[in-house]
Amino acid sequence: MSKQHVTTQINGNSVEFLCETRQTLLEVLRDELHLTGTKEGCGTGDCGACTVTVDSKMVCSCLFLGVEAEGKSIQTIEGMAQGDKLHVLQRKFTEHAALQCGICTPGMLIAAQTLLERNPDPTEEQTRYWLSGNLCRCTGYNQIIHAVLDAAKELRGAKS
């Protein structure tokens, strides 16, 4: 099958890849580019484990074709830490034990990051709604919500 050539930015780096037209961005990230931080839970848009941002908008990479990434800028979990330095959200997730098996975590972190970019001071309710497309079978969500709100607080403090 002939493959399509796609030029894109991933986590700030120009990346070119070849993919079949039916391949999802999730498959391209994991199977072609070996960026396996992004997880597959359901493949049908329900669980959010595959969340990435495309031009700063969060989407399910399982419902996005690799060929649609042409000319777009993508962020995955691999772009969140700065070298060895964890992002505040990542640090707060470990401090609050906001993960167990970790399958939902990359998607949760990307979703939480987009929330805080839009709204540095979300309420608990806004946070729960924003993350309602990210399912977690382990934690019961409370620790995740606490971690996000605590990270938001720290980020606000760092700015003022």
């Binding site: 848009g45 969340t51 969060m58 419902l63 996005f64 987009t114 924003w130 309602s132 497309g133 990210n134």
Partner: peptide
């Protein structure tokens, strides 16, 4: 319609 991920699409 769906989650924020879905609404973005």
């Amino acid at each position: 319609i769906g989650s924020y991920q879905i609404k973005s699409r």
